[in-house]
Every structure is written in structure tokens, then in C-alpha cells.
Design a protein around this nucleic acid. Structure first.
Lengths: 208, 208
DNA sequence: GTCTATACGAAGATAGAC
DNA sequence: GTCTATCTTCGTATAGAC
């Protein structure tokens, strides 16, 4: 009877919201924006459909909230962003930067398998059919392209960076979303191993 | 008043069907299965929605008909399928076969830009969110993987072939479906030129 | 045979009861 | 504050008029 109830209402609300978001992420990732209904999300989260609307206003806002990337959990990859304009411009330095870019890109592979990046899968799943998801996808891909392009020399750095990013996108789509038999049960590092020379070739460095 | 009317009813029907299929292809390619409604298809084709149902039975069947590939128009690429087991097993022969496979794969790029392959775009657009489209996509990708894998040596031929196919898928998705700025107005052969070494690297041939 | 009218179901969103 | 009940819209499919 003290001021300490079993669960503060704010905390209770927070947890319910989290449950709904988890359910939404899962359903959006599994079947895309259109087929994932508010009703199904609510049922999966064990709440009333109207509550979902109450909390998030609309299906679109729920999607946005479910899809926005959660700030990396553990250490954080660091991924691309290595340096600005390289001081000496020595070929070796460029080589090294490019190498880092490739490795950073390859690291995104296992990340995309991780459970917590289900939000990313949700976005990818809907990017071809839901306009808002397409906007998010273009933004996310654009950022990755920017990071990679910074490390590449030459006129067509952005084009090459885009192709490198799309290589990863294609593999991710085939693996995670289409679930092609050929990639079933293939360990991530095996895929990364095969992809590495291919990505290096796209950098334009290391011609032979 | 002879038996020759302006248009034989069969011919008229054929044309109406073709108009509907064209409209359906276009809408499916633009917005995917879910958002492309029967009503919209009918309006675009200038017919009544019920007529669409009359002709095709259901939306799903309409989709199947619209998506099924039309037998190549002009010469036909020939694409992959080059030979069976190579006679001598000489390294040079393998090299040549691999080269052909890469070129055949790259030729699918411009094909995917062509107007008549809008059916392919329709399938790709919906493959992540519509189960039946996913089935079609897996089948189509599987066939391409088969063709490429035949020309590759080694244990992991199918895996490599799958990755090569997915590279093209990623680029196609980014280019045609997401319409990334970075690939806007980039000529096909420029993309092919940059991709070629990358695909070669995936063959496992020509290590250095 | 071709199209109008409509039935049926489901989904998103809202208002009011508890 | 939470949920029941309802409203509106829309898409698929069907039945009946021309």
C-alpha cells in the first residue's frame, strides 16, 4: 500500500510498447508492410488492436518506430568511417583504407543475421513495395555508400561504392529474405570469404 | 453483313486480354502485388473490373499470367547454357567456359532494362512480400544459378553461382526498383564493365 | 458475351463504455 | 486508461441486367 506499486504505470506502459514493437518488427520482417496487419501485431503482442493505434497513432508510424535502428547493443562495429582526406596520399595508405572498407562492409553481413537487427530485415522486406520503406532503404543504403565512397579513390568512387553496397544487398536478400537453398546452412564467414575478392575487385584497387 | 465483321470476336477478345495483361504488368511492376488492385488494372486497361475477373479468374492468376516470361522477341540471348561435361578438362577450356558464363550473366543486365521484360520487374518487385512471387523468383534464380554452376569447376560451384546471380540481383534491384541516384543515368555497359572483374573473382578462376 | 450492381470480408481508424 | 463496438473504406468475387 506504500507508494511503491508492483509496477509503475510508466514502466508498465514502456514494456507494453516494447512488446508491441517487437511483435511489429517480427511481423513486418516476415511478411512486409501490407500483409502485416495491426490486428495481427496486437494479437501477437497480447494486446487490443485499439491499443496499438492509441500508442502509435497509425500503422505507418508504428512501422517507422519498429524500423528505426536500435543503437548498437554491445561494442559497436564502427564499420566504415575511417579517415578524412588521407595526409600523404601514398598508395599504401589508400590500399589500407580500401581494405578496411571492404572488411567493414563484410562485417555488415553477420550483423544482418543478428536477431536485434530484425528492424533492418523489416525495412528490407518492404522496401520494394512500401514507399516509406523505400525512402528508409535509400537513406540507409546512401549512408553506407557514402562511408565506402570516402575510402575509394577515383572519379567513379560513388558508383563503385554503390555497386559494392548492392552486392551485399543482393546477397542479403537472397540469403535472409528469399532464403535460397544454395545459401542455406552456409556459414557467414564462408560467404564473406568468397565475397572478399569480388568486393576488392570492385574497389578498382588491386587490379591484378 | 458478310461473315467478316470488323473484328472477329476472338480477335477482339485477344486484344482486350492483351491490354489487361499490359496494364497488369505495368502496375505490378510499379507497385507490387498488394497495391496493384484489380480496379486500378481495369481502369488502366479501360475495361470493367469484373471483366478482369471473368477473364483470369482471380488476381493471383492474373499475376501469374502477367509475370510469365514472354518468349524472347528478337534473336534471343542464349545467355548461359554452353556445354555439358567438357571433353578434355583442359584448364583453358574451363577458362573459356567461365568467361562465357560471366558474359552471359552480364547480358542479363540490359535485358532487365528492356521494356518487354516488365514481367520480370513485376516478379522482382513482389518477390519479397508476395509468397507466390517469391516462388517464381526462387525458380527463376535457381535456373540461372544452374546454368552458371554448370560452367564452374570445384566443390562450391553452386554456391559461387548463387552469389554471382545475387550480385546481379542486387544491382538490378538498386537500379531498376529502388532507383538509386548513384546508378541513375549510368549506361549499362559502364556497369557491366565495373562488374566484370567482380564476377570473375567470384568464379574462383583467375585467382591473381 | 459484356458490363452494372452488389455482396462479402477485412483492414485501418474512431468514439464511447467500463 | 483500457477495451468494446462501430464506421468507413476498399478489394475481391459473384449474380444478374442488357
Amino acid at each position: 500500500m506504500a507508494e511503491e506499486t508492483a509496477l509503475p504505470r510508466a514502466e508498465r506502459r514502456r514494456r507494453t510498447e516494447a512488446r508491441i514493437l517487437d511483435a511489429a518488427r517480427s511481423l513486418f520482417a516476415d511478411m512486409g508492410y501490407e500483409r502485416a496487419t495491426i490486428r495481427a501485431v496486437a494479437k501477437s503482442a497480447g494486446v487490443d488492436p485499439a491499443l496499438v493505434m492509441q500508442y502509435f497513432g497509425s500503422k505507418q508510424e508504428l512501422f517507422q518506430r519498429a524500423v528505426e535502428v536500435t543503437p548498437a547493443p554491445g561494442g559497436g562495429s564502427g564499420g566504415g568511417q575511417v579517415r578524412g582526406p588521407d595526409p600523404g596520399g601514398a598508395q599504401a595508405a589508400v590500399e589500407e583504407a580500401v581494405e578496411e572498407a571492404v572488411e567493414g562492409l563484410l562485417e555488415t553481413l553477420p550483423m544482418k543475421l543478428g536477431e536485434l537487427s530484425q528492424s533492418r530485415l523489416a525495412m528490407l522486406r518492404s522496401m520494394l513495395t512500401h514507399p516509406e520503406a523505400a525512402v528508409s532503404a535509400r537513406r540507409a543504403l546512401g549512408e553506407q555508400i557514402d562511408r565506402v565512397a570516402e575510402t575509394l579513390p577515383g572519379e567513379d568512387a560513388r558508383l563503385r561504392a554503390a555497386l559494392m553496397t548492392l552486392v551485399l544487398l543482393g546477397v542479403t536478400v537472397g540469403h535472409q529474405l528469399l532464403e535460397l537453398d544454395e545459401l542455406r546452412d552456409v556459414p557467414e564467414d564462408e560467404i564473406a570469404r568468397l565475397l572478399r575478392p569480388s568486393l576488392r575487385a570492385l574497389t578498382g584497387q588491386d587490379p591484378r
